[in-house]
């Protein structure tokens, strides 16, 4: 499904700020894999996501999605198949545009909307958006004409998730997408995430700083440090792991304690 083949990325090469954010990273995800990712600050988690999403082109190595080499594909081309959610709930939606307009833009990723540059939002699209919004259970289906800027952070993140999955992506990248939300909303958005990923069998990568989540959500856990993956567990081995084991594994693999200022052990 997704294959990262020995990719590397160095920022500001040749300066005092030189930083190798990804260092010979290799990873293969199977179709339908839902992997959680934990790691210290600066381990390269977000950078790996940005490399996959195409925010920058990697210095070396190749990225394959569904057998296709996307290493040099532009970001907006990749986004047809890859959904990307960030920690900042403001990043995924256009604030002065209405809910339905935002969804219409997300819906552009559907192949059937090709060649419809000069069409306005159709009644059929509206019905689809309304139905999907209703599933969030946040009452947004009755506020489709309101600008997104009026929504709360949690509502905006739920909307962003809905938009990213409105057209089923091949790969969903979740970069601590619940971390900026209050606990109740975070749980709600995480539940929505789990449901949609399971329903549609989306291959998914999720960065989290919640160690419990890292083991309970999805079917695979990856641990990153120094720009590559230091620990990768799934199946029975993962089922038996406790949070304490996970931290031990990190110490074993890296030689130091997991250093993440926001890490949650519960």
């Amino acid at each position: 499904m997704l294959k990262l083949n020995d990719i590397s990325k160095t920022f500001n090469p040749g300066t005092v700020n030189e930083k190798t954010a990804i260092d010979h990273l290799t990873l293969e995800l199977k179709d339908g894999d839902f992997a959680t990712i934990v790691g210290s600050n600066g381990a390269g988690k977000s950078t790996m996501f940005n490399a996959i999403a195409g925010t920058f082109i990697v210095d070396q190595g190749n990225i394959y999605l569904d057998g296709e080499d996307i290493t040099f594909k532009k970001e907006h081309v990749r986004s047809k198949y890859i959904g990307h959610l960030f920690q900042d709930p403001l990043k995924g939606t256009a604030p002065t545009m209405t809910i339905e307009e935002n969804m219409a833009l997300a819906f552009l990723r559907a192949s059937e909307s090709k060649g419809k540059m000069f069409s306005r939002i159709s009644a059929r699209d509206k019905a689809l958006f309304r139905e999907r919004l209703a599933r969030l259970g946040m009452g947004l289906e009755d506020r489709m004409k309101q600008p997104v800027g009026l929504l709360s952070g949690g509502q905006r993140q739920a909307l962003t998730l809905l938009m990213a999955t409105l057209v089923t992506p091949k790969l969903l990248l979740l970069d601590e997408h619940t971390a900026a939300l209050d606990p109740a909303t975070a749980e709600k958005v995480l539940d929505l995430t789990k449901d949609v990923v399971k329903d549609r069998g989306i291959t998914c990568l999720m960065v989290t700083h919640n160690m419990h989540q890292a083991l309970s959500v999805g079917n695979r856990t990856l641990m990153m440090n120094g720009g590559h993956i230091v620990f990768d567990t799934q199946g029975e081995e993962r089922a038996k792991l406790t949070v304490a084991d996970l931290l031990d594994k990190f110490k074993e693999g890296v030689g130091e304690e997991l250093d993440n200022d926001r890490v949650l052990l519960s």
């Binding site: 990307h84 604030p95 935002n102 997300a106």
Partner: peptide, 10 residues
């Protein structure tokens, strides 16, 4: 309005 969002909408 939001260039990031535009890119991720293809």
């Amino acid at each position: 309005d939001n260039a990031d969002m535009v890119k991720s909408s293809s």
